[in-house]
């Protein structure tokens, strides 16, 4: 069984990591989580991003949620805000697409063009 006592060890390890990385500005992954997004399957997409961040131990990447982004027909929508880059919006996301965005875009800096809003909206 997990106990609050586990947190002390986690605290020590995390403090070391934070010390190393606090000079870097973070990337934000924002997922539309209004009724439209959730009904379209935003929860498993968000879970995939969170798992990937945890598995890769990325201290400088935060996953957060927002309300309706305003293009419900393209939900689940995901916006990526990376330092020094323009915002990238991904549409009709799935956990599989999320894994690819994670490795190509978040980790390696290559936007996955075929999933972006630009590829569907003319």
């Amino acid at each position: 069984m997990k106990s609050l006592k586990d947190l002390e060890a986690i605290r020590q390890r995390t403090l070391q990591d934070v010390g190393i990385r606090n000079d870097r500005k973070g990337t934000r992954i924002v997922i539309g989580m209004a009724t439209c997004g959730i009904a379209a399957g935003a929860r498993p997409v968000m879970m995939k991003f969170v798992e990937e961040v945890a598995n890769r131990k990325l201290q400088d990447v935060a996953v957060s949620q927002t309300g309706c982004i305003g293009m419900c027909e393209f939900e689940p929508l995901v916006e990526i805000y990376a330092p020094g880059q323009e915002k990238v919006t991904y549409v009709k996301m799935t956990p599989e697409k999320a894994a690819r965005v994670m490795s190509d875009h978040i980790v390696n800096g290559q936007v996955v063009g075929e999933y972006t809003i630009g590829s569907v909206k003319k």
């Binding site: 947190l7 403090l15 961040v53």
Partner: peptide, 24 residues
């Protein structure tokens, strides 16, 4: 309770804390 155990410097969404929370 988790915040209190971790202290203010460590956010609840740091990877190892997140994994612990999910499991708990």
């Amino acid at each position: 309770q988790i915040r209190e155990a971790l202290g203010a410097e460590i956010p609840l969404n740091s990877p190892e804390v997140a994994a612990w929370m999910m499991e708990s």
